Simulated assay, not measured.
Amino acid sequence: MSILVTGGLGYIGSHTVVELINNNFEVIIVDDLSNSEKFILNNIEEITGKRPIFYPFDLTRKELLTQVFEAHNIEGCINFAAFKAVGESMEKPLDYYENNLFSLINILQEFRKRNISNFIFSSSCTVYGQADEMPIDENTPLKEPESSYGKTKQMGEEILKDFSKAYQKRVTLLRYFNPIGAHPSALLGELPSGIPNNLVPYVTQTAAGIREKLSIWGDDYPTEDGTAVRDYIYVLDLAKAHVAALKKLLNSQEETVLDIYNLGTGKGSSVLEVVKAFELANDVAIPYQICPRREGDITIAYANADKAEKELGWKSETTLEESLRTTWEWQKYLKERTH
């Protein structure tokens, strides 16, 4: 069974591709390599023993996407392809709206024309904004996101709700919290371009000496230690949730499905707790400095993922420390690879 994975050489996409192959799916990847590198394809093959079919192009190029659908009997799609830097999205909003939404619409047009169903959308907890209550479940009211990136995720969800209803399609929206960690083989992990936007790659690059010190944005939040709190979920646990969600769609007897799941651990960890856990897990010291808060950062967000456990038979299983240990192994692999 052929599954299209857009952005399949990216961070979460590549881990999900491995899990799909391990579950006997044929995987077709489309990735423009704007936020990934070609060697990841080789590493996927090294891990699984199978090389996915790969097309290097931008999904806004409709004619190339049509050729992929004509060449393969695609029975579902997991859509990761998107620009994702929150800060950059505020500086280049039109680029984000064009890339993230036009690419989504182009895939859905192919699904409509060819009467294909089974679509999984990579969404985000940013659609909740700063929720009024914790933990955040799927019924928590959505708020307008602070960033243009977050807005593209919320708009993407709305497009897919209309798509599912109007054309009787099976769709799942997966709202993830904060993915961290790397594959246990140390052959896959997060590959930030330039200065990392996310905490954990910044921590590992500081530990490796690439960055002089970690910047912690704000220590005056109303939390236990004054730093912001997030729900950090291991990337391979997240990948397994995508496979579980896909199997549920494929096995559904319903023509029209719209499922929404939060994917997180159900536990919040502060920035300082993550730094200390990394130091403990890897016996490495992290120099850091406290900086003023960043505009748009929320105080606290962690998930209630009970629905995913009940309906998908999935839950997060990997500890924060183990996740952080894998990400340090990945950083060491990258260092060896460049020498």
Score class of each variant (00 low, 15 high):
225 D>K: 07
9 L>K: 05
201 P>R: 10
285 A>I: 08
43 N>L: 04
111 F>T: 10
205 Q>L: 13
224 E>L: 06
324 L>M: 12
31 D>W: 03
250 L>E: 11
84 K>F: 06
238 L>P: 00
78 I>H: 00
193 S>L: 12
71 A>D: 12
133 E>F: 15
74 I>E: 01
116 I>Y: 06
37 E>K: 12
122 S>H: 00
315 K>I: 01
217 W>I: 04
211 R>V: 09
94 L>T: 14
222 P>Q: 05
239 A>H: 01
327 T>D: 13
286 I>D: 05
333 Y>A: 13
112 R>K: 15
102 F>M: 10
190 E>Y: 05
63 E>I: 05
5 V>E: 02
63 E>R: 10
20 L>V: 09
211 R>A: 11
269 S>A: 13
21 I>P: 09
131 A>T: 11
114 R>K: 13
282 N>M: 03
165 K>P: 01
115 N>A: 11
335 K>E: 15
71 A>Q: 14
257 V>G: 02
334 L>K: 15
272 L>S: 07
135 P>Q: 03
266 G>P: 02
253 Q>T: 14
305 A>S: 15
212 E>S: 14
47 I>P: 07
175 R>T: 10
73 N>E: 12
33 L>Y: 11
124 S>H: 05
263 L>H: 08
253 Q>Y: 01
148 S>V: 13
26 E>R: 13
67 Q>W: 00
122 S>P: 07
109 Q>M: 13
67 Q>Y: 01
252 S>A: 10
48 T>G: 07
263 L>E: 04
137 D>F: 05
337 R>S: 14
328 W>R: 14
221 Y>V: 03
215 S>E: 14
75 E>C: 06
139 N>L: 11
103 S>Q: 07
121 F>T: 04
49 G>R: 04
147 S>Y: 11
14 S>E: 02
307 K>F: 00
179 P>H: 03
330 W>I: 12
265 T>R: 14
297 D>W: 05
119 F>Q: 02
91 E>C: 06
207 A>P: 00
291 C>M: 15
67 Q>A: 09
192 P>R: 00
171 V>H: 06
37 E>W: 03
44 I>E: 04
125 C>L: 10
113 K>A: 15
62 K>I: 02
73 N>Q: 12
140 T>H: 06
99 N>T: 15
279 E>L: 07
152 T>C: 11
263 L>V: 07
31 D>P: 10
104 L>I: 08
274 V>T: 10
329 E>S: 15
49 G>F: 01
157 E>T: 07
12 I>H: 01
212 E>G: 15
129 G>R: 06
94 L>N: 10
26 E>Q: 14
10 G>E: 03
294 R>H: 13
180 I>A: 10
152 T>V: 08
86 V>Y: 01
126 T>R: 05
64 L>G: 01
79 N>Y: 03
227 T>H: 08
128 Y>R: 06
214 L>D: 12
111 F>C: 09
163 F>I: 06
3 I>Y: 04
304 N>I: 04
131 A>S: 12
